[in-house]
Design a protein around this nucleic acid. Structure first.
Lengths: 207, 207
DNA sequence: GCAATCATGTAAAACGTTACATGATTCG
DNA sequence: CGAATCATGTAACGTTTTACATGATTGC
């Protein structure tokens, strides 16, 4: 009973926000969240579709089914008056601190438990990802960054750029701190078969 | 069946990591996660206590109950051999991208939907929080930053400092982009009764 | 032919927060 | 005397991911 009587997904607000910029289908929302919005918030299909369905039940969005030829049917959602009102109500809440789960930083904190070669590879990988993300943001590529207002979008994009730039710079300048770390830890431990189980629990695919 | 046969909390790995630096109770782990680790990962009591219990069941940690005088009993946990091994196994996984949920940035993206005065207040609030966090990191206060290896801890602390500094700088230099935003949106909408419903869904309390 | 993209959705399970329950001590 | 700190834990609930199910089309 915090906000609604019914279960309230966070993704619901996100969907409202995105729809405030124009009609979209669930699939399109997901694609936006992978592209220009990736550094802000993420969501999976399994979160988005139910969220949209519930928003429709609540009368916050309308849904128009468009049957396309040579392509599966589409459900295009649009914001209603009360949807817009609800969005503004949500945005008025003073946001708390960002939620961060950085598996990378946890690893760095315990870098001395692993062989330096492995740490080097992880760092190289990270530099690559961040570099790619940064150049995506720098040249305004992808979908033409759909923002409600020019300058707000510019602010958010710039923020991402600033953080990424700082992170890249810092990692390059200080990687020796973790790469040089001891690895004296497991005295009797054999670390022969480290063949990199690649796993990505987080969104942003490293393309 | 991704990693273990039993249910696997993420917090479990975190606990293993922290215990690798020395024995601790659940309460102490929580306190560490509020202090010097706050920008890396967060966890609540409700996540930590069950995690420790399950780690014990799995034989990854030992538990020694210490009855204290003038204070409630304590359960001090310590890493076992297989616990240390399990930790290393988890750390070997190449970390995916950081998970970020920034309610702040979502708000900024749609700043034009709200009155500039409100946006100004949110930004002021944010500058204050980040400033406090930064000075906490800069002067090495709080518990003497418990790290496995000196330089790894230094790297992670420095990372936090670098990001916070960049964020503060950027927000100060570019706040006009969102504060000056239109607010032409809701033509017929009354925005009289905005009296700031303060809410903090995220960890880090703004003290 | 196989993979990828487009497109939607459901169900189960994992993960985590919040609130509650308990209780002593210390500090203002 | 009330609030905060120390200390552990459970249960309910909310949120989100993962995996599955389905199916046409396009490019290699």
């Amino acid at each position: 009973m915090l906000q609604h009587s019914e279960a309230a997904l966070h993704v619901k607000t996100l969907c409202l926000a995105i729809l405030s910029m124009g009609d979209a289908s669930g699939y399109e929302i997901k694609k936006l969240l992978e592209g220009p919005f990736s550094h802000i918030h993420e969501a999976s299909f399994g979160a988005i579709y139910p969220a949209l369905a519930r928003l429709q039940e609540e009368g916050l969005v309308t849904c128009e089914a468009r049957s396309q030829e040579k392509r599966p049917d589409k459900k295009v959602y649009g914001l209603t008056q009360s949807g817009r009102f609800e969005l503004i109500k949500e945005l008025e809440i003073v946001p708390g601190a960002d939620r961060i789960r950085s598996d990378f930083l946890v690893l760095m904190l315990y870098a001395h438990l692993l062989p330096p070669a492995h740490i080097e590879k992880v760092i190289e990988h990270r530099l690559q990802i961040y570099g790619a993300l940064l150049s995506d943001l720098t040249r305004g590529d992808g979908p033409p960054v759909p923002t409600g207002e020019e300058s707000c979008g510019e602010f958010v994009r710039g923020y991402g750029k600033a953080i990424l730039t700082a992170a890249l710079q810092y990692i390059e300048d200080n990687r020796h701190l973790v790469e040089g770390a001891a690895f004296l830890a497991g005295s009797s431990r054999k670390s022969a078969e480290i063949d990199d189980k690649e796993e990505r629990p987080a969104g942003v695919a490293a393309e």
